[in-house]
Nucleic acid binder design. Structure first.
Length: 480
RNA sequence: GCUCCCGUCGUCCAGUGGUCUAGGACAUCGCCCUUUCAAGGCGGAAACCGGGGUUCAAACCCCCGCGGGAGCGCCA
């Protein structure tokens, strides 16, 4: 049984890189009929917050990446929050001490600094070893620690040998002997260090495949040594490359929106965000770029995950979102649009039902015009505001000789029986023909008069949606 | 500095020794459709980081450069 996990630390919003890692884990699990575990890595007491954890779960749910085991739903291998597993880590750390594979250290941080500085001065790699650290392990020191109520930290004895990792994405990765020295696994505060906690958790939670960002690749050396020390079976590793900003450096806030939450606010659909993120590193065997979650699950494989870093292309994401918006039924589009419509103040949520018919037509009218849901208020505003024509508009109406046509159009609209799309179209066409007006400039002017802009939905939709009263009102004040 | 990863159009991805005069997508340019913009359709321009090998044959394999990224904390 395949078991994978996504293990974010609750120190802020879920960003797109994390979302992609989560997605790859999810896709792999579902493709293999496996289990997707969510684990909260909150051993950094300083930075972890409950609020971040809540927002993380909320965002994951919004994306539709549901987990089988996790802090909220529980599961057989819990708890799923590292802060609730502290006793386990202590036990595991001291098991290593007993086997002489780790040791307590009674060094002070400033002493460590001094050692480090000296090694750097001698142009040595700043690696700690038992020989160095144990010098401080004297009876006097132990007494001093005891007296002051300090706990020793636990260092892991890093075996000096070469380690080889067979990564599912990177291939064979060899870490030379002597790359790193001994390292801390357990803090004096009773909280474990990341590299230690992951190994303990992944092993105990019986994770079979570790799919994560390649910023963890170098860490894997430590983890390999720990698995070996415990004689525990190694999971498969798959290191996905980083997402970079347009300047080629690691994607961060200074590149603009990076939190999934930001994209939700801008009117991105979860499906398009997921689809785009998958495209960033993974490729469909048949080149189907636009494919929904189901299709991705069906066709996902680690073999088709690329090993090079990818620059985040907001333009393409936008295009993908446009594709998904256009696939929406008017009903689905309206459902997604409601928050944006109410927030713009066009109508309260309680009025949506009463205006449903009109809103659905409006959705159809603007569906091809937008790439993000937050463009909806702009598209709809001519229906809810009253754009006054500028003197410039009035002058060009005169100059282009369009006045007679507009006069006739007013009369016809005033007397037309039914206000239906077909009637509106035939009326407009007849007016243009009868007055021998240049269609192009007439249509453009009509748009400007009705909406005060020169882009937007199809004109007939605008006329129809505006309704006879508003149309006559806006035409009537032209003074033609 | 040390260690590790990566290097195909501006960007993402395909390509796993011959089928590559290198393919697709976004963006870009042009044309068509059309009442403008958009959407849609058609077409164009655009890339194998450099140098050495290996081989009958290299974008694909090896080495060396160069460039980019990551990690080297009682952060994760």
């Amino acid at each position: 049984m395949v078991r994978v996990r996504f293990a974010p630390s609750p120190t802020g919003f879920l960003h797109v890189g994390g979302a992609r890692t989560a997605l790859f884990n999810y896709l792999f699990a579902k493709n293999q009929n496996g289990v997707f575990v969510l684990r909260i890595e909150d051993t950094d007491l300083e930075r972890s917050t409950k609020e971040s954890e809540r927002s993380l779960l909320r965002t994951m749910k919004w994306l539709g990446l549901d987990w089988d085991e996790g802090p909220d739903v529980g599961g057989p291998k819990g708890p799923y929050r590292q802060s609730e597993r502290l006793d386990i880590y202590r036990r595991m750390a001291y098991a290593l001490v007993e086997k002489d594979k780790a040791y307590e250290a009674y060094v002070l941080p400033e002493e460590l600094e001094a050692i480090r500085g000296k090694m750097l001065e001698n142009k040595e790699s700043p690696h700690y070893s038992y020989e160095i650290i144990s010098q401080y392990d004297t009876p006097e020191r132990r007494q001093e620690f005891a007296r002051k109520g300090w706990s020793p930290v636990v260092y892991f004895k890093m075996p000096q040998k070469e380690y080889v990792l067979n990564d599912r994405i990177k291939g064979r990765v060899a870490f030379k002997e002597g790359t790193i020295g001994d390292f801390v696994i357990f803090r004096s505060t009773g909280v474990p260090i990341y590299n230690f906690a992951v190994v303990v958790d992944d092993a105990l939670m019986e994770i079979t495949h570790v799919i994560r960002g390649d910023d963890h690749l170098s860490n894997t050396l430590r983890q390999l040594a720990l698995y070996e020390a415990y004689q525990m079976p190694l999971p498969e590793f798959a290191h996905v490359s980083m997402i970079l900003g347009p300047d080629g450096s690691r994607l961060s806030k200074r590149h603009g929106a990076t939190a999934v939450e930001n994209f939700r606010e801008m009117g991105y659909l979860p499906s398009s965000l997921l689809n785009y993120l998958a495209l960033l590193g993974w490729s469909h065997a048949q080149d189907n770029e636009i494919c929904a979650l189901e299709e991705m699950i069906r066709t996902f494989s680690l073999e088709r995950v690329s090993s090079n870093p990818a620059i985040f292309d907001a333009e393409k994401l936008r295009w993908v979102n446009g594709m998904y918006i256009r696939q929406l039924t008017p009903e689905a589009m309206l459902e997604n649009a409601v928050p944006f419509i109410t927030e713009a103040g066009f109508m309260g949520p309680e009025n949506v039902d009463a205006n449903k018919k009109w809103l659905l037509e409006a959705m159809k009218a603007i569906q091809n015009e937008i790439h993000q849901l937050d463009e909806i208020p702009g598209q709809l505003s001519p229906f809810f505001t009253d754009p006054i024509p500028t003197t410039e508009t009035l002058r060009s109406l005169e100059d282009d000789g369009l006045s007679p046509a507009f006069k006739l159009l007013y009369e016809r609209f005033d007397t037309i029986n039914a206000w239906e799309i077909t009637d509106i179209v035939s009326t407009i066409k007849a007016v243009v023909k009868e007055t021998k007006t240049n269609p192009k400039s007439f249509y453009h002017m009509l748009r400007v008069v009705l909406t005060a802009r020169d882009t937007g939905p199809e004109l007939v939709y605008i006329v129809h949606l505006l309704g006879r009263n508003k149309v006559l009102n806006r035409l009537g004040r032209l003074g033609v």
